[in-house]
Design a protein around this nucleic acid. Structure first.
Lengths: 217, 217
DNA sequence: TGCAAACAACGTACTCGGTAGTATGTATGC
DNA sequence: GCATACATACTACCGAGTACGTTGTTTGCA
């Protein structure tokens, strides 16, 4: 019963990598992205891995724990990229743009993980989790709140600096994320798509989201 | 083998209501919304119904068919509301706002159906469908394309009218929908929330989305 | 008008395949 | 010889779909 969700032998859920675990996570992210959590079997993950159940269950107690770890990794990627942009100097509105840009870049580059993270948002309703798992779920939700606050704080700062008009930040930040995150539901990574193409895509979406803040009413 | 997906005895998938069927659809929408398609059992739907499998399988061939019909109903609600707004007279930019407003109003009022429709977007990847079902799926996708085209056409019209600058409509319309549809992933209908509250919420989001189109770069 | 067959609209009780999780074996470093 | 890092071979259960029974209502026909 002891041990974190992400690891069987380390205390709590800082996602532990060990090459092999990262491989499992990558395969799981891919599988969960393709079929969703409930419809994905552990054997599906194993097929992508070229391995069997033994390997997965050696590292993870349950399918749910595996899913949570993928979700967690996705959020950590986001936080790492965005926090850096958030701590730059300059006007709030410029930092916000940099943050949004970093966010969507992570989405495009680590597509599977981010899509799983979005799926995870919908799972809170279903109560099919053990007590142990609720703890990690809470941890993930805290990360999410912290992440969203990073954005809403910067938006409010930009309002105080007069760069954008007053508006209901609580709601607007949702629409802001919506414009960015919706990408996970329609975009499909293509091989023949150049880095410039991806940057153009990201810029267009960021422009849209930033413009959305420019005028209240 | 004959008969549509939505009905066992009527030709094709115009969703047929008959009081009892509508009850089943409502329960299914609620269940699918709460747990997602794969995690929802027919018995879950039956519990919400206060009935048993016999009733559901009397009206629907399979769980997938039931899901498709919910999805279809959701899209029909959207189309009905938005098409009316789209056929008004006036500047394209004004019609577009009316369309967006109608869209999000439907989302808020028929929350379960709309959430299921969003889920349906992700299911195309998984190929677990029969030949019959692929037909209805194609039909649903056509509705979706038609729906999106309704918006992108109006956006292009607004560009020609000079109301908004040139921009990549193909991408921007996705971000536009994202800002609106993301609501299904965070909003929870509340009893104590007045009609005015809901209108304020809708207006804020529509304002954001419309503003997003105002400036390219 | 009356009645019986037919059918619609369910409920009940079963089957059967898929899948999460487990128990156990095995190789390979240390 | 002991633990890590897996593979193999099970079990136990859940849930989709089915077969069949039951009740109420409509319809064909004398």
């Amino acid at each position: 019963m002891r041990g974190g969700v992400a690891s069987l032998r380390r205390p709590v859920a800082t996602s532990t990598d060990s090459a092999s675990r990262t491989e499992i996570l990558d395969a799981a992210a891919e599988a969960f992205m393709q079929k969703g959590f409930a419809a994905t079997s552990i054997d599906d993950v194993c097929d992508l891995l070229g391995a069997t159940k033994g390997r997965v269950y050696h590292h993870y107690r349950s399918k749910t724990d595996l899913f949570f770890d993928v979700h967690l990794r996705g959020m950590e990627m986001d936080l790492a990229a965005v926090q850096e942009a958030a701590q730059q100097e300059g006007a709030a509105i410029d930092r916000l743009r940099a943050m949004a840009s970093a966010h969507i870049t992570v989405i495009i580059q680590n597509f599977a993980y981010q899509r799983v993270a979005v799926q995870g948002l919908e799972m809170h309703l279903a109560g099919q989790t053990t007590e142990q798992q609720r703890a990690t779920l809470k941890h993930i939700l805290n990360l999410r709140d912290k992440y969203e606050k990073l954005f809403s704080d910067t938006i409010e700062e930009a309002i105080r600096e007069g760069a954008i008009p007053h508006q209901n930040v609580r709601i607007v930040v949702k629409a802001f994320f919506g414009a960015l995150n919706w990408t996970t539901l329609w975009y499909r990574p293509r091989r023949n798509q150049s880095a410039a193409d991806r940057k153009a895509l990201a810029d267009t979406i960021v422009d849209f989201a930033m413009s959305g803040l420019r005028m209240a009413k």
